[in-house]
């Protein structure tokens, strides 16, 4: 969505325009949900936090500073809610997350199932990500899934850029070691990433 269009929708939504509010939600909900799903490993947690994040966002639109990216603001609120939820439910929440992540019993139902290879890849990816620390996982998700630059991630998670890079590199190394142990992704062609 173009920034000018986004600003227009934000102003309208701030005045109580439900259509504008709906458009804002639909423009950002996928990425926020995907981020939270990756972080928590649980669709129910991701759904709850996503909804609450947008409720907070839309009820506080007057606080948004248009000099910044709206999506970053949304993610910041979502992240804070997620962290708060984790702290509130510790230690059971963490255990649940790990359990849910390991067994993946409740992946969201997708309208169209992928092919066998992609399902396999996705399951392996979930397993690999579960091997990482929370910080490594979050940074990896923001960098590789959301395509955020290092500088923005650093600001989002409140770490120096060098530390973010360290977490990113360690996380990828750990993932690689795990995937190597699992003997997965073996059939992909080299050209996939050339």
């Amino acid at each position: 969505m173009l920034k000018a269009e986004e600003q227009r929708l934000i102003k309208k939504a701030a005045r109580g325009d439900r259509d504008a509010a709906g458009a804002i939600i639909r423009a950002h909900q996928k990425s926020v949900y995907a981020y939270l799903l990756r972080m928590s490993g649980r669709p129910d947690v991701a759904e709850d936090v996503t909804q609450e994040a947008f409720v907070r966002v839309l009820m506080n639109l007057d606080r948004f500073d248009p000099r910044y990216r709206f999506s970053t603001w949304v993610f910041t609120i979502a992240r804070r809610l997620y962290v708060n939820a984790c702290q509130k439910h510790k230690p059971a929440f963490d255990t649940d997350i790990v359990d849910g992540w390991q067994s993946s019993p409740c992946r969201p139902e997708r309208p169209v199932e992928g092919d066998e290879q992609s399902d396999w890849t996705r399951a392996s990816l979930d397993d690999a990500l579960s091997q990482l620390s929370t910080q490594q996982r979050e940074i990896l998700v923001l960098f590789h899934q959301m395509d955020w630059p290092i500088a923005l991630i650093a600001k989002h998670v409140g770490m120096p850029e060098g530390t973010v890079k360290s977490h990113l590199h360690r996380g990828r190394r750990r993932m690689r070691e795990y995937l190597n142990e699992q003997k997965m992704f073996a059939e992909h062609e080299w050209e996939v990433w050339t």
Partner: peptide, 12 residues
Amino acid sequence: ELVKLRAALESM
């Protein structure tokens, strides 16, 4: 190994 990792990251 790199192919595996790259495929995993792409699938994210």
